[in-house]
Design a binder for these strands. Structure first.
Lengths: 353, 353
DNA sequence: ATGAAAGCGCTAACAT
DNA sequence: ATGTTAGCGCTTTCAT
């Protein structure tokens, strides 16, 4: 028996192609013969409803296929159960893994995730932030943000903010960073192997993380009193970019025996370039990467690299954010550092005698 | 001079840590001495406003830092300028690249993107769909959906739907697929090289795409009257899984000379396993992958694989969706097929005499 | 334990 | 070219 669902009015002839009207609390209330507020209470798990009433309401809601209207709720409460995530390139495994970590934590919390890809462009980033704020996101995770400190402070006035891979003077702004020390270990490792002539292949030109890593390499060498590394920067952060960068280094300073890179992609490209010149890795030149992507163990030769628990990185960022969002979450930690470790494989070896 | 912004009422003592009240159209209207509807018109680029008025409103909006309240607009219009995207594993390059394609198209359209990762779980997928529908998304892209046809039909009643890599009988449901023929080419290529004993390493066990590819391989062999391939399935779709699968095949049927795989990750693992046994690729065994991931050209040996323009895949899916969403978009195409081609590198060669 | 009324910020339908 | 009114679906007082 086809059940006719009562609508308030204007129950236009359903021409078959139109979308069915989705049920509202009002309809549930009428059908279940309770007030609209009681329906609301049931939907919000308010304990102050009799089991019988709750059951009745749930039944009706079930058969009608009721689904709470998030925007309506957001309008009145000011909270959307949604967070925003900004990243600079989702095609990059590093970021996609961050997204995964954030996504998992978000789902655990019963939240939704609005994603924006800014392409490392500060203007796009600002537009995205506005867009997300317009959506009334309860919080924002900014990964490799290109914004200025005061711009971020400004955003933090309107929403809780967590920064990935960047610190911020404003104590309202939370952040989670990769342990800077990690690249030091890589450099030390090469020093122990006897290397003295270093090359460094850099990452995104204006990125903070890129700068920190480059500095880390320089610092360790300086501390040991060795000569400065030759730095190749401005190349695309890709296998191809690493290839070109390595060729440039080999042209300019052929005596290098150890190459430290911003990430695994560059390292792979660098190894290719070395091999293309008839040289061998690691016999002639050692190369170390950063990230430990899932195929780093499967390159030729297997890549020595700094292993970063990227998923945990994203997961942590989201947890920090929810710590801020949750009522009484003010006493949760405001920052975190993700520990990394060096994975020694076969792309590094003793310097030639 | 600090400007005091007038608020309607209840201008509570700002205790310094509270969020500032965000301006509304009403405030803009008062400040600019126009009606709230005029502000609305300006914000919606209604041409029927005098330039002078528009300028005045824009000015006030600018200084007050006005930002339209999306949920409020959504509540009244029923449209959120947001689409939902469901994928099964964002850590997988294939999906992250789809996300990228969708994201770019979405941004071009001035829309926002809600992302869910379902982990290939139909229940999670259903929950996510409900969540997104609750957000009033204007459309939904389902990538490798595990839902049943009628479940999808049901979703399509409430929102425009585009399927990635799956067709659907319901004509309301749009879809974009990878050309099934692609894997045929790979198999034919191996046949031309003289191979007769095939192995196939399969993908996700209940996935449609996985099944189509496996069938494609079988079909081509059958057409040529060659023996059936030995099929390794149920292994994790990863380098490690490929490694194990290949070992299994080598144990069970050592005479295989050609391996077709569901994707590049499996192919890389397979090559590893072959090499670990002291055999050579392609001299002893040829291997072909699928996807042409960015590092497929850099494996050892460089991988022969079916190149899939994944970005375009996602981009197309979003375009199809916006075609449906846009008013008068009914006459736009309802499905599309993404062409692939075989990239012959060095992991395939003539069969040993 | 439940209900009535007000209103969140915006747009649609009708004025003028 | 601009304004008025009503109401989207929900939650928040405040009653009862």
């Amino acid at each position: 028996m086809a059940q006719k669902i009562a609508t308030t009015s204007g129950d236009k002839e359903n021409d078959g192609t139109r979308r069915p009207r989705v049920p509202t609390m009002k309809q549930i209330a009428e059908e279940a013969k309770v007030s609209i507020k009681t329906v609301s209470r049931v939907m919000n798990n308010d304990p102050a409803v009799k089991e019988a009433t709750r059951g009745k309401v749930m039944d009706v809601a079930g058969t009608l296929g009721y689904r709470p209207n998030t925007p309506a709720r957001t309008l009145v409460t000011g909270r959307s159960k949604t967070i925003g995530l900004l990243i600079s390139d989702i095609g990059n495994y590093f970021f996609s893994e961050i997204v995964k970590g954030v996504q998992v934590a978000t789902e655990e919390e019963g939240y939704s995730l609005l994603l924006c890809d800014t392409g490392e462009n500060p203007d796009t980033e600002l537009r995205c932030v506005d867009l997300l704020l317009g959506h009334k996101v309860d919080g924002l995770i900014l990964s490799s943000s290109r914004l200025k400190d005061d711009q971020i402070s400004n955003v933090a006035k309107y929403s809780d903010v967590v920064l990935c891979n960047r610190t911020h003077p404003d104590e309202k702004v939370r952040s989670v960073c990769i342990e800077d020390n990690a690249l030091h270990l890589a450099t030390e490792h090469l020093i122990e192997l006897g290397h003295r002539h270093f090359g460094y292949i850099g990452g995104p030109v204006r990125g903070r993380a890129a700068w920190m890593r480059e500095e880390g390499c320089r610092e360790v060498l300086a501390r040991h009193g060795f000569e400065k590394p030759i730095v190749a920067s401005g190349f695309p952060v890709s296998i191809e970019g690493g290839y070109e960068a390595m060729n440039w280094i080999l042209d300019v300073k052929p005596e290098v025996s150890a190459i430290v890179t911003y990430n695994d992609m560059l390292a792979i490209g660098a190894m290719k370039a070395v091999q293309a010149r008839g040289l061998k890795v690691p016999e002639d030149i050692s190369v170390v990467g950063f990230d430990d992507l899932n195929f780093a163990a499967h390159t030729n030769p297997p890549l020595t690299t700094v292993s970063v628990p990227i998923f945990r990185f994203g997961y942590k960022a989201a947890q920090l954010l929810f710590g801020a969002i949750r009522p009484n979450g003010d006493d949760t930690p405001h920052s975190d550092v993700i520990k990394c470790h060096l994975v020694i494989r076969s792309s590094t070896g003793k310097v030639k005698a």
